[in-house]
Design a protein around this nucleic acid. Structure first.
Lengths: 251, 251
DNA sequence: CGAATAGTTGAGGACTCTCAATCGGTGTGG
DNA sequence: CCACACCGATTGAGAGTCCTCAACTATTCG
Protein backbone atom coordinates (compact mmCIF):
# COMPACT_ATOMS: atom_id res chain seq x y z
CA UNK A 1 0.00 0.00 0.00
CA UNK A 2 0.89 3.63 -0.07
CA UNK A 3 2.41 3.06 -3.41
CA UNK A 4 2.85 6.07 -5.58
CA UNK A 5 3.12 4.73 -9.07
CA UNK A 6 6.15 6.77 -9.83
CA UNK A 7 8.34 9.18 -7.98
CA UNK A 8 6.18 12.03 -7.05
CA UNK A 9 8.58 14.86 -7.63
CA UNK A 10 7.63 16.29 -10.92
CA UNK A 11 10.47 18.35 -12.05
CA UNK A 12 13.21 18.16 -9.57
CA UNK A 13 14.77 14.77 -9.76
CA UNK A 14 18.03 13.06 -9.30
CA UNK A 15 19.72 16.33 -10.02
CA UNK A 16 19.72 18.23 -6.82
CA UNK A 17 20.04 17.85 -3.18
CA UNK A 18 21.61 21.28 -3.00
CA UNK A 19 19.65 23.47 -0.65
CA UNK A 20 17.55 26.02 -2.41
CA UNK A 21 18.08 28.81 0.03
CA UNK A 22 15.28 31.16 0.76
CA UNK A 23 16.84 34.12 -0.90
CA UNK A 24 17.20 33.64 -4.61
CA UNK A 25 18.99 36.73 -5.78
CA UNK A 26 18.09 36.89 -9.42
CA UNK A 27 14.64 37.46 -10.79
CA UNK A 28 15.58 35.08 -13.56
CA UNK A 29 15.09 31.43 -13.61
CA UNK A 30 18.62 30.44 -12.87
CA UNK A 31 17.99 29.18 -9.40
CA UNK A 32 14.45 28.30 -10.03
CA UNK A 33 12.28 25.54 -10.31
CA UNK A 34 11.47 23.31 -13.19
CA UNK A 35 15.05 22.49 -13.59
CA UNK A 36 14.52 19.98 -16.27
CA UNK A 37 12.83 22.36 -18.50
CA UNK A 38 14.32 25.58 -17.51
CA UNK A 39 17.86 24.93 -16.57
CA UNK A 40 20.85 24.92 -18.78
CA UNK A 41 22.37 21.59 -17.78
CA UNK A 42 22.80 19.50 -20.86
CA UNK A 43 21.63 22.15 -23.22
CA UNK A 44 23.84 23.07 -26.13
CA UNK A 45 25.35 26.32 -25.05
CA UNK A 46 24.15 28.22 -28.03
CA UNK A 47 20.63 27.70 -26.85
CA UNK A 48 21.18 29.14 -23.46
CA UNK A 49 20.70 32.79 -24.36
CA UNK A 50 17.50 32.00 -26.18
CA UNK A 51 16.13 30.30 -23.20
CA UNK A 52 17.13 33.08 -20.90
CA UNK A 53 15.80 35.76 -23.15
CA UNK A 54 12.54 34.18 -24.06
CA UNK A 55 11.45 32.39 -21.10
CA UNK A 56 11.63 33.17 -17.48
CA UNK A 57 9.91 36.22 -16.11
CA UNK A 58 9.21 36.34 -12.40
CA UNK A 59 5.94 37.18 -10.81
CA UNK A 60 4.68 37.44 -7.29
CA UNK A 61 1.45 35.97 -6.03
CA UNK A 62 0.24 36.71 -2.57
CA UNK A 63 -1.28 34.22 -0.20
CA UNK A 64 -4.82 33.50 -1.23
CA UNK A 65 -4.44 35.06 -4.65
CA UNK A 66 -4.89 33.08 -7.82
CA UNK A 67 -2.08 32.71 -10.31
CA UNK A 68 -4.75 31.71 -12.77
CA UNK A 69 -8.33 30.64 -12.55
CA UNK A 70 -10.33 27.89 -14.15
CA UNK A 71 -11.64 29.33 -17.39
CA UNK A 72 -8.76 31.76 -17.89
CA UNK A 73 -7.14 31.71 -21.24
CA UNK A 74 -4.01 29.57 -21.24
CA UNK A 75 -0.85 31.07 -22.62
CA UNK A 76 1.94 30.26 -20.26
CA UNK A 77 3.34 27.51 -18.17
CA UNK A 78 4.63 28.39 -14.75
CA UNK A 79 7.23 27.17 -12.34
CA UNK A 80 7.16 27.80 -8.63
CA UNK A 81 10.30 29.69 -7.66
CA UNK A 82 9.46 29.98 -3.99
CA UNK A 83 6.42 29.43 -1.88
CA UNK A 84 3.64 26.97 -2.61
CA UNK A 85 0.29 26.78 -4.33
CA UNK A 86 -2.70 24.52 -4.49
CA UNK A 87 -4.50 23.63 -7.70
CA UNK A 88 -8.20 23.02 -7.61
CA UNK A 89 -11.26 22.43 -9.72
CA UNK A 90 -14.63 23.92 -9.01
CA UNK A 91 -17.41 21.62 -10.04
CA UNK A 92 -20.89 22.61 -11.12
CA UNK A 93 -22.48 22.88 -7.76
CA UNK A 94 -19.72 25.16 -6.56
CA UNK A 95 -17.81 22.74 -4.39
CA UNK A 96 -14.12 22.81 -4.99
CA UNK A 97 -11.74 19.91 -4.98
CA UNK A 98 -8.02 20.30 -4.46
CA UNK A 99 -6.12 18.48 -7.17
CA UNK A 100 -2.57 19.17 -6.19
CA UNK A 101 0.05 20.86 -4.07
CA UNK A 102 2.86 22.62 -5.87
CA UNK A 103 6.08 23.33 -4.07
CA UNK A 104 9.13 25.27 -5.15
CA UNK A 105 10.46 23.71 -8.32
CA UNK A 106 7.16 22.32 -9.47
CA UNK A 107 5.53 23.10 -12.78
CA UNK A 108 2.12 24.58 -13.09
CA UNK A 109 -0.35 25.31 -15.83
CA UNK A 110 -0.39 22.10 -17.84
CA UNK A 111 -4.11 21.94 -17.27
CA UNK A 112 -4.55 24.51 -20.02
CA UNK A 113 -2.74 22.78 -22.83
CA UNK A 114 -5.57 20.61 -24.03
CA UNK A 115 -8.13 23.34 -24.60
CA UNK A 116 -6.24 26.63 -24.39
CA UNK A 117 -8.27 27.35 -21.31
CA UNK A 118 -7.24 26.48 -17.79
CA UNK A 119 -9.18 23.63 -16.25
CA UNK A 120 -7.78 24.24 -12.77
CA UNK A 121 -7.34 27.28 -10.67
CA UNK A 122 -3.99 27.80 -8.96
CA UNK A 123 -4.07 29.61 -5.64
CA UNK A 124 -1.09 30.60 -3.54
CA UNK A 125 -0.91 29.01 -0.10
CA UNK A 126 1.64 31.64 0.94
CA UNK A 127 3.29 34.58 -0.73
CA UNK A 128 5.04 32.99 -3.65
CA UNK A 129 7.21 33.79 -6.59
CA UNK A 130 6.49 32.30 -9.97
CA UNK A 131 8.43 31.94 -13.20
CA UNK A 132 6.39 32.44 -16.32
CA UNK A 133 7.17 30.53 -19.49
CA UNK A 134 5.24 31.75 -22.50
CA UNK A 135 3.92 28.64 -24.11
CA UNK A 136 4.34 29.83 -27.67
CA UNK A 137 8.00 30.60 -27.11
CA UNK A 138 8.43 27.29 -25.39
CA UNK A 139 6.97 25.44 -28.31
CA UNK A 140 9.28 27.22 -30.70
CA UNK A 141 12.23 26.34 -28.55
CA UNK A 142 11.16 22.74 -28.45
CA UNK A 143 11.04 22.62 -32.20
CA UNK A 144 14.60 23.80 -32.35
CA UNK A 145 16.00 21.65 -29.59
CA UNK A 146 15.34 18.00 -29.06
CA UNK A 147 16.63 18.31 -25.53
CA UNK A 148 14.04 20.91 -24.71
CA UNK A 149 11.38 18.88 -26.43
CA UNK A 150 12.29 15.88 -24.35
CA UNK A 151 12.18 17.87 -21.20
CA UNK A 152 8.81 19.32 -21.88
CA UNK A 153 7.46 15.89 -22.70
CA UNK A 154 8.88 14.44 -19.55
CA UNK A 155 7.44 17.26 -17.58
CA UNK A 156 4.01 16.54 -18.94
CA UNK A 157 4.49 12.86 -18.42
CA UNK A 158 5.50 13.39 -14.84
CA UNK A 159 2.35 15.32 -14.12
CA UNK A 160 0.38 12.59 -15.73
CA UNK A 161 2.00 9.97 -13.56
CA UNK A 162 1.59 12.04 -10.47
CA UNK A 163 -2.11 12.32 -11.09
CA UNK A 164 -2.29 8.61 -11.68
CA UNK A 165 -0.64 8.09 -8.35
CA UNK A 166 -3.23 10.27 -6.70
CA UNK A 167 -6.00 8.34 -8.41
CA UNK A 168 -4.56 5.27 -6.78
CA UNK A 169 -4.59 6.97 -3.40
CA UNK A 170 -8.19 8.04 -3.81
CA UNK A 171 -9.30 4.76 -5.25
CA UNK A 172 -7.85 2.22 -2.93
CA UNK A 173 -6.55 3.57 0.35
CA UNK A 174 -8.30 4.04 3.67
CA UNK A 175 -8.43 7.47 5.25
CA UNK A 176 -5.45 6.72 7.48
CA UNK A 177 -3.45 5.44 4.57
CA UNK A 178 -4.27 8.51 2.54
CA UNK A 179 -3.10 10.89 5.22
CA UNK A 180 0.05 8.86 5.75
CA UNK A 181 0.74 8.75 2.03
CA UNK A 182 0.24 12.46 1.77
CA UNK A 183 2.62 13.24 4.62
CA UNK A 184 5.22 10.93 3.14
CA UNK A 185 4.81 12.50 -0.26
CA UNK A 186 5.33 15.99 1.08
CA UNK A 187 8.21 14.79 3.19
CA UNK A 188 9.88 13.19 0.21
CA UNK A 189 9.38 16.19 -1.99
CA UNK A 190 10.78 18.39 0.72
CA UNK A 191 13.79 16.20 0.97
CA UNK A 192 14.35 16.27 -2.78
CA UNK A 193 14.45 20.03 -2.52
CA UNK A 194 17.19 19.88 0.03
CA UNK A 195 15.04 20.55 3.04
CA UNK A 196 14.30 18.40 6.01
CA UNK A 197 12.23 15.35 5.32
CA UNK A 198 11.22 15.19 8.95
CA UNK A 199 9.88 18.64 9.57
CA UNK A 200 7.99 21.05 7.40
CA UNK A 201 5.31 23.66 7.40
CA UNK A 202 2.32 22.40 5.50
CA UNK A 203 0.39 25.44 4.44
CA UNK A 204 -2.75 23.67 3.39
CA UNK A 205 -5.64 23.86 5.80
CA UNK A 206 -7.18 20.68 7.13
CA UNK A 207 -10.01 21.33 4.76
CA UNK A 208 -7.68 21.52 1.78
CA UNK A 209 -5.98 18.31 2.82
CA UNK A 210 -9.31 16.63 3.20
CA UNK A 211 -10.45 17.82 -0.17
CA UNK A 212 -7.25 16.62 -1.77
CA UNK A 213 -7.54 13.25 -0.07
CA UNK A 214 -11.24 12.75 -0.55
CA UNK A 215 -12.10 12.83 3.15
CA UNK A 216 -13.52 15.43 5.52
CA UNK A 217 -11.49 17.92 7.48
CA UNK A 218 -12.63 16.32 10.73
CA UNK A 219 -11.30 12.98 9.62
CA UNK A 220 -7.98 14.56 8.71
CA UNK A 221 -7.78 16.15 12.10
CA UNK A 222 -8.70 12.99 13.94
CA UNK A 223 -6.17 10.97 12.03
CA UNK A 224 -3.40 13.44 12.67
CA UNK A 225 -4.23 13.28 16.37
CA UNK A 226 -4.22 9.51 16.20
CA UNK A 227 -0.83 9.50 14.49
CA UNK A 228 0.43 11.83 17.16
CA UNK A 229 -0.77 9.55 19.96
CA UNK A 230 0.99 6.67 18.27
CA UNK A 231 4.19 8.67 18.16
CA UNK A 232 4.33 8.71 14.37
CA UNK A 233 4.24 12.47 14.01
CA UNK A 234 4.26 15.62 16.04
CA UNK A 235 1.83 18.11 14.56
CA UNK A 236 1.24 21.57 15.88
CA UNK A 237 -1.15 23.20 13.51
CA UNK A 238 0.59 23.55 10.20
CA UNK A 239 4.00 22.63 11.49
CA UNK A 240 4.51 18.93 11.09
CA UNK A 241 7.31 16.76 12.31
CA UNK A 242 7.53 13.18 11.23
CA UNK A 243 8.93 11.10 14.06
CA UNK A 244 8.65 7.62 12.59
CA UNK A 245 8.84 7.45 8.83
CA UNK A 246 8.79 3.68 8.72
CA UNK A 247 5.81 3.62 10.98
CA UNK A 248 3.98 5.90 8.61
CA UNK A 249 4.96 3.76 5.67
CA UNK A 250 3.37 0.68 7.19
CA UNK A 251 0.04 2.50 7.45
CA UNK B 1 -22.06 16.86 -9.22
CA UNK B 2 -21.04 14.50 -11.89
CA UNK B 3 -18.92 17.18 -13.38
CA UNK B 4 -16.12 16.01 -15.56
CA UNK B 5 -13.69 18.87 -15.66
CA UNK B 6 -13.39 18.74 -19.39
CA UNK B 7 -14.88 16.73 -22.14
CA UNK B 8 -13.80 13.23 -21.60
CA UNK B 9 -13.12 12.24 -25.14
CA UNK B 10 -9.44 12.42 -25.55
CA UNK B 11 -8.70 12.37 -29.16
CA UNK B 12 -11.88 12.23 -31.05
CA UNK B 13 -13.51 15.59 -30.80
CA UNK B 14 -15.72 17.93 -32.69
CA UNK B 15 -14.54 16.30 -35.84
CA UNK B 16 -16.65 13.26 -36.28
CA UNK B 17 -20.04 11.93 -35.82
CA UNK B 18 -19.59 9.75 -38.83
CA UNK B 19 -20.06 6.14 -37.91
CA UNK B 20 -16.85 4.24 -37.66
CA UNK B 21 -18.10 1.06 -39.17
CA UNK B 22 -16.88 -2.19 -37.88
CA UNK B 23 -14.91 -3.11 -40.92
CA UNK B 24 -12.03 -0.79 -41.47
CA UNK B 25 -10.48 -1.96 -44.68
CA UNK B 26 -6.96 -0.61 -44.47
CA UNK B 27 -4.35 -1.67 -41.99
CA UNK B 28 -3.18 1.88 -41.99
CA UNK B 29 -4.29 4.61 -39.78
CA UNK B 30 -6.61 6.29 -42.18
CA UNK B 31 -9.77 5.25 -40.48
CA UNK B 32 -8.21 4.92 -37.13
CA UNK B 33 -8.15 6.45 -33.97
CA UNK B 34 -6.24 9.31 -32.63
CA UNK B 35 -7.49 11.53 -35.34
CA UNK B 36 -5.93 14.63 -34.00
CA UNK B 37 -2.51 13.23 -34.00
CA UNK B 38 -2.71 10.76 -36.72
CA UNK B 39 -5.00 12.09 -39.30
CA UNK B 40 -4.21 14.32 -42.19
CA UNK B 41 -6.80 17.02 -41.68
CA UNK B 42 -5.09 20.36 -41.48
CA UNK B 43 -1.68 18.99 -42.09
CA UNK B 44 0.38 20.52 -44.87
CA UNK B 45 0.12 17.98 -47.61
CA UNK B 46 3.81 17.51 -47.98
CA UNK B 47 3.87 16.01 -44.50
CA UNK B 48 1.30 13.41 -45.20
CA UNK B 49 3.55 10.81 -46.73
CA UNK B 50 5.98 11.11 -43.85
CA UNK B 51 3.25 10.47 -41.39
CA UNK B 52 1.94 7.54 -43.30
CA UNK B 53 5.33 6.06 -43.77
CA UNK B 54 6.66 6.53 -40.30
CA UNK B 55 3.81 6.06 -38.10
CA UNK B 56 0.92 3.75 -38.14
CA UNK B 57 1.50 0.05 -38.00
CA UNK B 58 -1.36 -2.13 -36.92
CA UNK B 59 -1.25 -4.79 -34.30
CA UNK B 60 -3.74 -7.21 -32.84
CA UNK B 61 -4.20 -7.85 -29.17
CA UNK B 62 -6.48 -10.59 -27.99
CA UNK B 63 -8.90 -10.35 -25.12
CA UNK B 64 -7.00 -10.60 -21.85
CA UNK B 65 -3.62 -10.01 -23.45
CA UNK B 66 -1.48 -7.05 -22.52
CA UNK B 67 -0.47 -4.49 -25.11
CA UNK B 68 2.24 -3.49 -22.68
CA UNK B 69 2.93 -4.07 -19.05
CA UNK B 70 3.98 -1.86 -16.21
CA UNK B 71 7.77 -1.91 -16.24
CA UNK B 72 8.07 -2.49 -19.98
CA UNK B 73 10.37 -0.18 -21.83
CA UNK B 74 8.46 2.65 -23.47
CA UNK B 75 9.09 3.33 -27.11
CA UNK B 76 5.75 3.84 -28.76
CA UNK B 77 2.45 5.49 -28.32
CA UNK B 78 -0.61 3.59 -29.39
CA UNK B 79 -4.07 4.34 -30.67
CA UNK B 80 -6.98 1.99 -30.40
CA UNK B 81 -8.24 1.20 -33.88
CA UNK B 82 -10.98 -1.13 -32.78
CA UNK B 83 -11.90 -2.89 -29.59
CA UNK B 84 -11.22 -1.61 -26.10
CA UNK B 85 -8.62 -1.87 -23.37
CA UNK B 86 -8.27 -1.11 -19.72
CA UNK B 87 -5.21 0.51 -18.19
CA UNK B 88 -4.18 -0.42 -14.69
CA UNK B 89 -1.51 -0.05 -12.08
CA UNK B 90 -0.37 -2.82 -9.81
CA UNK B 91 0.67 -1.53 -6.43
CA UNK B 92 3.17 -3.02 -4.09
CA UNK B 93 0.94 -5.48 -2.36
CA UNK B 94 -0.19 -6.86 -5.69
CA UNK B 95 -3.65 -5.33 -5.84
CA UNK B 96 -4.41 -3.74 -9.14
CA UNK B 97 -6.34 -0.58 -9.75
CA UNK B 98 -7.95 0.24 -13.05
CA UNK B 99 -6.95 3.71 -14.17
CA UNK B 100 -8.81 4.00 -17.42
CA UNK B 101 -10.93 2.59 -20.19
CA UNK B 102 -9.73 3.12 -23.75
CA UNK B 103 -12.16 2.88 -26.61
CA UNK B 104 -11.61 3.00 -30.33
CA UNK B 105 -9.93 6.25 -31.18
CA UNK B 106 -8.28 6.72 -27.81
CA UNK B 107 -4.58 7.12 -27.26
CA UNK B 108 -2.55 4.85 -25.10
CA UNK B 109 0.94 4.71 -23.72
CA UNK B 110 1.49 8.21 -22.40
CA UNK B 111 2.28 6.69 -19.04
CA UNK B 112 5.73 5.84 -20.31
CA UNK B 113 6.87 9.25 -21.43
CA UNK B 114 8.11 10.51 -18.10
CA UNK B 115 10.51 7.70 -17.33
CA UNK B 116 10.88 5.70 -20.55
CA UNK B 117 9.20 2.85 -18.72
CA UNK B 118 5.49 2.18 -18.68
CA UNK B 119 3.81 2.97 -15.39
CA UNK B 120 0.57 1.29 -16.38
CA UNK B 121 -0.31 -1.98 -17.97
CA UNK B 122 -2.76 -1.98 -20.85
CA UNK B 123 -4.92 -5.07 -21.21
CA UNK B 124 -7.41 -5.79 -23.95
CA UNK B 125 -11.02 -6.15 -22.84
CA UNK B 126 -11.84 -7.78 -26.18
CA UNK B 127 -9.92 -8.67 -29.30
CA UNK B 128 -8.60 -5.33 -30.41
CA UNK B 129 -6.57 -3.71 -33.11
CA UNK B 130 -3.96 -1.14 -32.23
CA UNK B 131 -1.98 1.45 -34.18
CA UNK B 132 1.60 1.82 -33.11
CA UNK B 133 3.35 5.17 -33.28
CA UNK B 134 7.07 4.97 -32.66
CA UNK B 135 7.77 7.73 -30.22
CA UNK B 136 11.12 8.71 -31.67
CA UNK B 137 9.64 9.19 -35.10
CA UNK B 138 6.78 11.10 -33.62
CA UNK B 139 9.13 13.45 -31.86
CA UNK B 140 11.01 14.10 -35.06
CA UNK B 141 7.80 14.80 -36.86
CA UNK B 142 6.74 17.19 -34.13
CA UNK B 143 9.94 19.11 -34.51
CA UNK B 144 9.26 19.56 -38.18
CA UNK B 145 5.61 20.41 -37.94
CA UNK B 146 4.03 22.80 -35.52
CA UNK B 147 0.66 21.28 -36.25
CA UNK B 148 1.85 17.87 -35.20
CA UNK B 149 3.52 19.32 -32.15
CA UNK B 150 0.31 21.00 -31.15
CA UNK B 151 -1.63 17.83 -31.60
CA UNK B 152 0.69 15.79 -29.52
CA UNK B 153 0.59 18.39 -26.79
CA UNK B 154 -3.16 18.51 -26.84
CA UNK B 155 -3.28 14.78 -26.72
CA UNK B 156 -1.16 14.75 -23.60
CA UNK B 157 -3.15 17.60 -22.14
CA UNK B 158 -6.39 15.77 -22.74
CA UNK B 159 -5.18 12.74 -20.90
CA UNK B 160 -4.10 14.94 -18.08
CA UNK B 161 -7.51 16.55 -17.87
CA UNK B 162 -9.24 13.25 -18.10
CA UNK B 163 -7.30 11.96 -15.15
CA UNK B 164 -8.10 15.13 -13.26
CA UNK B 165 -11.73 14.51 -13.94
CA UNK B 166 -11.43 11.02 -12.55
CA UNK B 167 -9.68 12.37 -9.45
CA UNK B 168 -12.74 14.50 -8.96
CA UNK B 169 -15.00 11.49 -9.29
CA UNK B 170 -12.98 9.52 -6.79
CA UNK B 171 -12.56 12.40 -4.41
CA UNK B 172 -16.00 13.83 -4.07
CA UNK B 173 -18.77 11.63 -5.38
CA UNK B 174 -20.85 9.01 -3.64
CA UNK B 175 -20.89 5.48 -5.01
CA UNK B 176 -24.13 6.09 -6.89
CA UNK B 177 -22.81 9.27 -8.40
CA UNK B 178 -19.64 7.51 -9.48
CA UNK B 179 -21.47 4.78 -11.28
CA UNK B 180 -23.79 7.29 -12.92
CA UNK B 181 -20.86 9.45 -13.98
CA UNK B 182 -19.11 6.45 -15.42
CA UNK B 183 -22.10 5.33 -17.43
CA UNK B 184 -22.61 8.84 -18.74
CA UNK B 185 -18.96 9.10 -19.63
CA UNK B 186 -19.01 5.88 -21.62
CA UNK B 187 -22.28 6.87 -23.21
CA UNK B 188 -20.92 10.21 -24.29
CA UNK B 189 -17.72 8.71 -25.64
CA UNK B 190 -19.75 6.18 -27.55
CA UNK B 191 -21.83 8.91 -29.02
CA UNK B 192 -18.77 10.89 -30.06
CA UNK B 193 -17.65 7.85 -31.96
CA UNK B 194 -20.88 7.74 -33.90
CA UNK B 195 -22.46 4.92 -31.97
CA UNK B 196 -25.55 4.92 -29.84
CA UNK B 197 -25.33 6.88 -26.66
CA UNK B 198 -28.16 4.87 -25.19
CA UNK B 199 -26.94 1.34 -25.66
CA UNK B 200 -23.53 -0.21 -25.50
CA UNK B 201 -21.63 -3.25 -24.50
CA UNK B 202 -19.41 -2.47 -21.55
CA UNK B 203 -16.70 -5.06 -21.53
CA UNK B 204 -15.33 -4.33 -18.13
CA UNK B 205 -16.32 -6.72 -15.37
CA UNK B 206 -18.08 -5.40 -12.30
CA UNK B 207 -14.81 -5.82 -10.52
CA UNK B 208 -13.00 -3.65 -13.06
CA UNK B 209 -15.66 -1.01 -12.80
CA UNK B 210 -15.44 -1.07 -9.05
CA UNK B 211 -11.70 -0.80 -9.12
CA UNK B 212 -11.89 2.11 -11.51
CA UNK B 213 -14.48 3.85 -9.38
CA UNK B 214 -12.96 3.10 -6.01
CA UNK B 215 -15.80 0.93 -4.79
CA UNK B 216 -16.37 -2.82 -4.51
CA UNK B 217 -17.85 -4.98 -7.18
CA UNK B 218 -20.84 -5.74 -4.97
CA UNK B 219 -21.60 -2.06 -4.64
CA UNK B 220 -21.39 -1.64 -8.39
CA UNK B 221 -23.80 -4.48 -8.87
CA UNK B 222 -26.23 -3.23 -6.25
CA UNK B 223 -26.23 0.26 -7.71
CA UNK B 224 -26.84 -0.99 -11.22
CA UNK B 225 -29.78 -2.97 -9.90
CA UNK B 226 -31.04 0.10 -8.08
CA UNK B 227 -30.77 2.17 -11.26
CA UNK B 228 -32.66 -0.50 -13.09
CA UNK B 229 -35.48 -0.51 -10.55
CA UNK B 230 -35.72 3.24 -10.89
CA UNK B 231 -36.00 2.92 -14.64
CA UNK B 232 -32.77 4.76 -15.32
CA UNK B 233 -31.06 1.94 -17.13
CA UNK B 234 -31.65 -1.53 -18.41
CA UNK B 235 -28.63 -3.69 -17.76
CA UNK B 236 -28.25 -7.28 -18.78
CA UNK B 237 -24.78 -8.28 -17.85
CA UNK B 238 -22.40 -6.30 -19.97
CA UNK B 239 -25.05 -4.92 -22.28
CA UNK B 240 -26.25 -1.62 -20.96
CA UNK B 241 -29.08 0.53 -22.15
CA UNK B 242 -29.56 3.97 -20.71
CA UNK B 243 -33.24 4.75 -20.49
CA UNK B 244 -33.16 8.10 -18.75
CA UNK B 245 -30.05 10.15 -19.34
CA UNK B 246 -31.32 13.17 -17.48
CA UNK B 247 -32.25 11.01 -14.56
CA UNK B 248 -28.72 9.68 -14.44
CA UNK B 249 -27.31 13.17 -14.65
CA UNK B 250 -29.20 14.26 -11.57
CA UNK B 251 -27.56 11.55 -9.49
C1' DC C 1 -7.06 42.76 21.74
C1' DG C 2 -10.99 40.78 19.85
C1' DA C 3 -13.37 38.98 16.04
C1' DA C 4 -13.03 35.69 12.74
C1' DT C 5 -11.08 31.77 11.08
C1' DA C 6 -8.96 27.21 11.72
C1' DG C 7 -8.58 23.11 14.32
C1' DT C 8 -10.02 19.55 17.73
C1' DT C 9 -13.03 16.29 19.75
C1' DG C 10 -17.46 13.78 20.61
C1' DA C 11 -21.84 11.26 19.55
C1' DG C 12 -24.81 9.30 16.41
C1' DG C 13 -25.96 7.82 11.92
C1' DA C 14 -25.29 6.77 7.01
C1' DC C 15 -22.88 4.62 3.57
C1' DT C 16 -20.11 1.21 1.93
C1' DC C 17 -17.49 -2.98 2.85
C1' DT C 18 -16.99 -7.84 4.12
C1' DC C 19 -18.50 -12.32 4.16
C1' DA C 20 -21.60 -15.52 2.38
C1' DA C 21 -25.08 -17.79 -0.28
C1' DT C 22 -27.41 -18.01 -4.58
C1' DC C 23 -28.18 -17.37 -9.43
C1' DG C 24 -26.76 -17.31 -14.24
C1' DG C 25 -24.25 -17.87 -18.20
C1' DT C 26 -20.44 -20.35 -20.95
C1' DG C 27 -17.61 -23.86 -22.25
C1' DT C 28 -16.16 -28.64 -21.93
C1' DG C 29 -16.52 -33.41 -21.72
C1' DG C 30 -19.21 -37.44 -21.27
C1' DC D 1 -27.41 -33.14 -26.16
C1' DC D 2 -27.08 -32.69 -21.53
C1' DA D 3 -24.53 -32.44 -17.08
C1' DC D 4 -21.23 -30.34 -14.76
C1' DA D 5 -17.87 -27.05 -13.48
C1' DC D 6 -16.38 -22.53 -13.41
C1' DC D 7 -16.53 -17.74 -13.40
C1' DG D 8 -19.11 -13.59 -13.09
C1' DA D 9 -23.00 -11.30 -11.23
C1' DT D 10 -26.60 -10.67 -7.82
C1' DT D 11 -28.49 -10.24 -3.35
C1' DG D 12 -28.57 -10.35 1.77
C1' DA D 13 -27.05 -9.52 6.65
C1' DG D 14 -24.00 -7.56 9.71
C1' DA D 15 -20.00 -4.75 10.75
C1' DG D 16 -16.91 -0.91 10.31
C1' DT D 17 -15.35 3.31 8.52
C1' DC D 18 -16.18 7.73 7.71
C1' DC D 19 -19.50 11.57 7.61
C1' DT D 20 -22.61 14.93 9.77
C1' DC D 21 -23.74 17.94 13.25
C1' DA D 22 -22.30 20.24 17.15
C1' DA D 23 -19.64 22.23 20.86
C1' DC D 24 -15.49 23.83 22.16
C1' DT D 25 -10.58 25.53 21.82
C1' DA D 26 -6.67 27.61 19.49
C1' DT D 27 -4.70 30.54 16.24
C1' DT D 28 -4.41 34.30 13.14
C1' DC D 29 -4.92 38.83 11.47
C1' DG D 30 -6.78 43.36 11.32
Amino acid sequence: MLSPVAGSAIVVRQSSRAPLTAAQPSARCSGCAMRHLCMPQGLPTEELPKLEALICAARKVRRGEALYRSGDRFDSLYAVRSGSLKTLIVNRDGREQITGLRLAGDALGLDGIATDVHAFSAVALEDSSICTLPYAALKTLCRESGTMQDRLHRLMGDQFNQEASQMMVLGSLTAEERVAAFLLDVSSRNWQRGYSQAEFRLRMSREDMGSYLGITLETVSRILSRFQKRGLIDAQGKLIRICDIEGLQTV
